[in-house]
């Protein structure tokens, strides 16, 4: 039984038209699935459905075979921006999810410290978020997500964890995340608009296209296990195909915005 299953899910915000339509996919326990698609196509919206920030969708979303409404929260969500609280130091920011539990303060602190050393931020406990670099903040945000996962959440939802970083730091962080995820016993969904990143990190890539967005392709990328594998003929072929899908979609989007602008 899959951990998470979308069946013909469609959704639109109250204020606008339909964002996603006919979305069907499933995620097995232990998988790492990437979602790619153009900016604004509705990737984050899928995460909002899984974290139940949005309801009133069509179709069904099931967790372990039960409707998502009936199962408790399953996801630890890492947002696109770090959203660290500026008045809390890093340690207290990371410990925030644990404050939902009745737990001695001492234990909260030691758990958060563990997570911080795990992401390589030991020594930054007392610092305020504004004193850290962008990459360090992202890692702190990841550590906070790990704390949320400790609340018994099976699924990690990472929304463009590295979009705010320059390309060198980004490469480092990708390698770092790969190590982290492999050593964790969790299921991961990762949003990105970087094809290389998706292929490198994930075992399967879901491509969203069109407006409203639906799944254009699900590609197996489990054979790409390290950066060198990105240059095998097989990987290059796959990259080519995905790039084509996405750029066709981009052309479509551009035409779409032109039409709406002309209509104004």
């Amino acid at each position: 039984m899959p951990l998470l299953e979308f069946n013909n899910v469609g959704f639109g915000y109250k204020t606008g038209g339909r964002i996603v339509d006919n979305i069907s996919f499933s995620v097995e326990k232990g998988e790492l699935v990437a979602i790619i698609g153009a900016s604004g196509c509705g990737k984050s919206t899928l995460f909002r459905l899984i974290t139940r920030l949005e309801a009133n969708y069509d179709g069904s979303i099931e967790v372990n075979g039960e409707p998502i409404e009936k199962s408790g929260a399953i996801a630890a969500f890492m947002p696109q921006k770090d959203l660290l609280l500026p008045w809390r130091n890093i340690l207290k920011n990371v410990a925030l999810p644990l404050e939902t539990l009745k737990m001695p303060k001492q234990e909260r602190i030691s758990r958060a410290k563990n997570a911080l050393s795990r992401v390589g931020l030991s020594g930054c406990e007392e610092k305020k978020p504004s004193e850290l670099s962008g990459g360090m903040r992202q890692r702190a945000s990841f550590a906070r997500t790990l704390m949320t996962a400790e609340l018994g959440r099976e699924l990690l939802l990472l929304d463009e964890p590295f979009s705010a970083l320059d390309s060198i730091t980004r490469t480092q962080m990708q390698d770092w995340l790969l190590k982290q995820v492999r050593s964790l016993d969790k299921t991961v969904m990762l949003i990105t608009h970087d094809i290389d990143e998706a292929l490198l990190l994930a075992g399967r890539v879901i491509v969203l296209c069109d407006k409203p967005a639906s799944i254009a392709r699900q590609a197996d990328s489990s054979m790409i296990k390290s950066r060198e594998h990105l240059f095998t003929p097989q990987a290059i072929q796959l990259k080519e195909e995905l790039t084509q899908l996405l750029s066709a979609d981009a052309v479509l989007r551009e035409a779409d915005t032109e039409v709406t602008e002309n209509a104004r």
């Binding site: 609280l85 999810p97 939902t100």
Partner: peptide, 26 residues
């Protein structure tokens, strides 16, 4: 306070009273 922050805290499972005390007041 940004709605994003409030929503993130909601996904962590914090109650609205906790969100008020830990986010809104500071």
């Amino acid at each position: 306070t940004k709605r994003e922050n409030e929503e993130l805290m909601k996904t962590m499972g914090l109650s609205s009273l906790q969100i008020f005390l830990k986010l809104k007041i500071p």
